[in-house]
Simulated scan of single mutants.
Amino acid sequence: MQRRAVAVYAVLFVLVGAAAGTLTATADAPEVSFDNPAFEGGAGDSFEHDGTTYTVTEVTEETSESHGATTTTLTGTIEWNRTVEESATWANGSTVTYDGNDWRVVIDGEDPTAVTLQDQLDRTAILENDSNADNETVQSDGEEYVVVRNGNGSATLVPAGEYFPEPEERRITEGETIEYDGHGATVENVTASGATLRWETIETASTGLSQRGTVTLDGTDFVVIFQDSSTVSLSSNMDSYEAQLAEIDQFEQRMSGLTRVRWTSLGFVVFLLAFAFMPSRY
């Protein structure tokens, strides 16, 4: 009688365990998906958000093995062009490079509205190109002179101000746009201490994409979902994403509970069978 009762209970626990195992094996795990994602595509595909075009430049699948388990990691990169404001300051009295030449910055007055660029003459080159002049100037009575020799070798001291040509000057007014360093730069502000130039340039920015990660584009958060090894989706519907995560978490808790039920049932079956075949003292 004892063994019959044990057999009935053992069969009951076997059925319970089998049912739990069947549910665990056949249940479809929910996955995150979006009905109308802001973007869905692969490498080379683009989409527009707030006037900016974003391009997915790559989608990469990497596989690694650890302790016999294989892990697949999906990543990607997204790029876009953005406008960056740059500036430069021409300090009064400094030397700047402009239009392929070196210029001395001259700003006159306490409330100037323009900046003057004076050509920096290469005096050494001028002297070296003149076969009648010494290669260096000389000082006499506090004045600078150039030694010029005639055909007989007689030397004449020519004041440097007379010998060298007047340097070229360029006057640039406040608000004027010039070609500077390959950009159209505007002289925005001129003060007694210097002139400020501003211009805009286009640069390429990028950010990485990871499975179920978030990426912020122009102030908007997007969740990233890789559909497969070549397709990625971006959605700004964070409420839907959080709800799906909660559903997945609930599913995993249920599967964990069913797994515990299966192993607990198996444990009871083993215990009952062991109990049934224990020798009786009576």
Rank of each mutant, 00 (worst) to 15 (best):
L245Y: 01
A243D: 14
S230W: 10
S229T: 11
E247A: 13
Q250L: 14
T216Q: 13
D221F: 04
F226G: 06
D228V: 08
G219N: 07
E242W: 06
G219D: 11
V224K: 02
A243Q: 12
S230L: 12
D249F: 02
L245Q: 14
T220N: 12
S240M: 10
V215P: 03
S236C: 02
M238N: 11
D218L: 15
V224W: 04
I248V: 11
T214E: 12
T220I: 14
L217K: 03
T220W: 09
I225D: 13
S230H: 12
I225Y: 09
S229W: 06
M238H: 10
T231A: 06
L217N: 01
M238T: 13
Q227R: 15
Q250P: 02
M238C: 12
G213F: 04
E242T: 15
D221R: 12
S233G: 08
V224M: 09
Q253H: 13
L217V: 07
E247H: 01
V224G: 00
T231F: 03
D218H: 12
E242L: 11
Q244I: 08
N237H: 10
S240I: 04
G213C: 01
D221L: 09
D239S: 12
E247M: 04
Q227L: 13
V223D: 03
E247Y: 05
V223Y: 04
Q250I: 08
F251P: 00
L245R: 09
E252N: 12
V223N: 05
V223F: 02
S233A: 14
F251C: 00
D221C: 09
D249M: 07
S236E: 12
D221M: 11
A246Y: 05
T231W: 02
Q227P: 05
G213V: 04
Q253N: 15
F226Q: 03
E242V: 13
D239I: 11
T216C: 03
T214L: 05
Y241S: 01
S233Y: 06
S240P: 04
V224Q: 07
V224H: 03
Q253F: 13
Q253L: 14
G219P: 10
Y241D: 01
T231I: 10
Q227N: 14
N237V: 10
S236K: 13
T214R: 08
T216G: 01
E252R: 09
Q227I: 14
G213A: 05
N237A: 15
V215F: 01
F226E: 04
S236A: 14
Q250C: 07
Q250K: 14
F222K: 00
D249K: 09
E252M: 05
L217G: 02
M238P: 11
F222R: 02
F251G: 00
G219T: 07
N237W: 05
G213T: 02
F226Y: 06
D221Q: 14
L245A: 06
Q253Y: 12
V223R: 03
L217W: 03
V232A: 08
A246Q: 08
S240Q: 14
Q253A: 14
S235Q: 05
V232N: 07
E247F: 02
D218C: 11
D239Y: 08
V215N: 03
N237R: 09
Q244S: 09
S235L: 00
